[in-house]
Computed example of a mutant assay.
Amino acid sequence: MQNQTSNFDMKMKLIHGFSNKTRIQILECIKEEEKTVNQIVEEIKGSQSNISQHLACLKGCGIIVGRNEGRYMYYSLRNQHIRDLLSMFDVVLEDVENDVACCDRHID
């Protein structure tokens, strides 16, 4: 039972990475190509400190990776599986969009 509980905890940690509007915006922003913090800030119109905190969260749970080049850090999705998962969210959302829109039990 301990192993199954641990697996559930790990799944929840992974899902938590996707459970914030800013983090989803960041992931969509870097879905097709790597970008610097400044490029991400400019594209999603956020504050640099807030974006940096969310990038740290995403990197910490393994959803994105960072690559240093000179004085810039470039962020990208960890792999094709993460890109596929983001696409699958869109596919599933198409099926349940009306129900999600009417749901008043979600947490912001």
Rank of each mutant, 00 (worst) to 15 (best):
Gln4Thr: 04
Thr5Leu: 14
Thr5Arg: 11
Thr5Ser: 09
Ser6His: 05
Asn7Leu: 13
Asn7His: 07
Phe8Arg: 10
Asp9Phe: 13
Asp9Ile: 15
Met10Asp: 14
Lys11Tyr: 13
Lys11Leu: 15
Lys11Ala: 14
Lys13Val: 14
Lys13Ala: 11
Leu14Trp: 11
His16Tyr: 15
His16Ala: 14
Ser19Trp: 01
Ser19His: 02
Lys21Thr: 06
Thr22Met: 07
Thr22Phe: 01
Ile24Trp: 05
Ile24Ala: 08
Ile26Ser: 08
Ile26Asp: 07
Leu27Thr: 07
Glu28Met: 11
Cys29Met: 06
Cys29Lys: 07
Ile30Gly: 03
Ile30Gln: 05
Lys31Thr: 05
Lys31Gln: 11
Val37Glu: 11
Val37Pro: 00
Gln39Ala: 08
Ile40Asp: 06
Val41Gln: 05
Val41Gly: 02
Ile44Arg: 03
Gly46Trp: 00
Ser47Glu: 15
Ser47Leu: 07
Ser47Asp: 14
Ser47Cys: 03
Ser47Pro: 00
Gln48Trp: 01
Ser49Gln: 10
Ser49His: 07
Ser49Cys: 05
Asn50Ser: 12
Asn50Leu: 10
Asn50Asp: 03
Ile51Thr: 12
Ser52His: 04
Ser52Thr: 14
His54Ser: 04
His54Arg: 12
Ala56Tyr: 04
Cys57Thr: 10
Lys59Ala: 08
Gly60Cys: 05
Gly60Arg: 05
Cys61Asn: 14
Cys61Ile: 15
Arg67Pro: 00
Arg67Lys: 15
Asn68Leu: 11
Tyr72Gln: 09
Tyr72Arg: 09
Tyr75Pro: 00
Tyr75Val: 04
Ser76Val: 00
Leu77Gln: 01
Arg78Gly: 00
Arg78Thr: 08
Asn79Gly: 03
Asn79Cys: 09
Asp84Tyr: 06
Asp84Val: 01
Leu86Trp: 02
Leu86Ser: 01
Met88Gly: 01
Met88His: 09
Phe89Met: 11
Asp90Phe: 02
Val91Gln: 14
Leu93Lys: 11
Glu94His: 10
Glu94Cys: 10
Asp95Tyr: 15
Asp95His: 15
Val96Ile: 15
Glu97Asn: 12
Glu97Cys: 05
Asn98Ala: 12
Asp104Asn: 13
Arg105Val: 10
Arg105Leu: 13
His106Thr: 12
His106Ala: 12
His106Met: 15
Ile107Trp: 07
Ile107Thr: 12
Asp108Asn: 06
Asp108Met: 03
